[in-house]
Amino acid sequence: MNLINKKVTHKRFGIGSIVEHNDSSIEIHFASENKKFVFPDVFGEHLKLHDKSVANSLEKIIQKKELERKEEEWKKEEEKKLQRKYQELRLGHEKLMKNHKLHPESQMVFWCDTEEQNSSFAEWKVFSGVIKSGNNQGKPNKPIRLHQNSAVLLTAIDSSMPEKDRRILGVYMVNEDFIGKLCENGYIPAHSEYRLQLTEQESDQMLFWKYYVNEKFPQKMTWNTGKYRYFENSWVAQILRDIVSLKSDPKERELAQQFFDHFCKMNQIIEQELPKPNGALMRI
C-alpha cells in the first residue's frame, strides 16, 4: 500500500503528510518537523488518515496484523504449556529412575516368528503377548523388569534347524521414556537412536546360545514356551561388544560402539571387567 503524500492528523502534532514508510515504521512531515512512528500501531488512537478509502484498506491490514499477533502469542503460550508438561514428565521419569533399583536381568530376549522378523524391524517394536490364564487372561503382558536401561534382543530360528542354532537378528534399547510397569498395551518401542539390525551374514555369526545359559542345566539348550524371557545385563553387553567387532563399515561400527558405550553406562558395566561369553554353546 502506497501512503506517500497522504494527509493525516495526529492527536498531538496536528496535520501532516506521510513522506516515508515501510513494514515497521512511518515518517510524517508536520509543520515544524518530521516525526517517525511505529507502523501500523500509530494509526487508530493517535493518527487518522484523511482519505477514507485508504483508511478502510489500512484498517484491514491492521486487523490482519492483530490476528497474526494474537495467533503468535497463542502459539507461544501453547509452546510454554508443552514445555511445562514435558518438564513435568521428565521430572517424573527422573524420580522413577532415581528410585529404580537396577535389576541384574532387566533385558529381554524375544523369539521372532517369520512375520515378526519383518514387522519388528519395520516398526521397531515388539509385542510381549497376552496372559494365558487367571483373572487377567487375555490382557497384554506387562514387561515389568524393563526400564530405560533395558535392551530387547531379537532372535529367530529356522523350523528345520536345532535350537542351538538360534541366531541374533538385532537389538535395540527401549524408547527413552519407556517404563515396563506402566506399559498397558504390551508393545515395547525402540529408542530413537540405539537400534541395530544385523545382516544375514552377521546374524549367522551371532548365535544366541553362545551367551545364554540356564545355570541349573548349563549344557541344555531349550526355549520351551513363551515369546520372551529376561536376560542378564552383562550378556547383552557381551553381544554388543561382539557386534562392534563384526561391523566393517566405519559408520555402522561407530553407531554400534556408541550403543555399547551407552548400554554400559546405563547398566553400570565397566568394559574392562566384562567377561568373555560363557553360554551353553561354550560349555559343550
Rank of each mutant, 00 (worst) to 15 (best):
N2W: 01
I4P: 10
V8N: 10
H10W: 06
G14Q: 00
G16T: 04
S17M: 08
V19I: 15
E20D: 13
D23A: 14
S24H: 15
I28P: 08
H29L: 15
A31Q: 14
S32I: 11
E33M: 02
N34D: 14
K36G: 05
F37V: 00
F39H: 01
D41N: 10
D41L: 12
F43Q: 05
E45M: 08
E45N: 13
H46I: 08
L49Q: 09
H50M: 05
D51F: 04
K52G: 07
K52Y: 06
K52H: 10
N56E: 14
N56K: 15
I61A: 11
L67R: 09
E73G: 01
E73C: 00
W74G: 03
W74T: 13
K75Q: 15
E77C: 03
E78S: 08
E78G: 05
L82N: 09
R84L: 14
Y86S: 15
Y86W: 12
Y86Q: 15
E88Q: 13
L89P: 01
G92I: 00
K95A: 12
L96N: 08
L102P: 13
L102A: 09
S106C: 15
S106L: 00
Q107T: 08
Q107M: 14
F110K: 01
F110V: 06
D113T: 05
T114N: 06
E115C: 00
N118P: 00
A122S: 14
W124T: 02
K125P: 07
G129C: 05
I131L: 12
K132Y: 09
N141R: 12
R145Y: 09
H147N: 15
H147G: 15
N149A: 15
V152K: 03
T155C: 10
S160E: 08
E163W: 06
R166Q: 06
V171K: 03
M173V: 05
M173I: 06
V174M: 01
N175L: 11
D177R: 09
K181A: 10
K181H: 13
E184C: 02
G186I: 11
H191D: 15
H191S: 06
Y194V: 02
R195W: 12
L196G: 04
Q201V: 09
Q201K: 13
Q201P: 00
S203V: 01
D204G: 04
M206W: 01
L207G: 04
K210P: 01
Y211E: 10
E215A: 11
K216G: 07
P218K: 00
Q219I: 10
W223L: 10
K227D: 07
K227Q: 10
Y228I: 02
F231V: 04
F231K: 00
S234M: 13
I239W: 03
I243P: 07
V244F: 00
V244A: 01
S245T: 05
E252I: 03
E252A: 14
E252T: 08
E254N: 13
Q257R: 13
Q257Y: 08
H262W: 12
F263Q: 08
N267F: 01
I269H: 07
I270H: 12
I270A: 10
E271A: 14
Q272I: 04
Q272P: 00
E273N: 12
P275E: 12
M282Q: 15
R283P: 14
R283S: 07
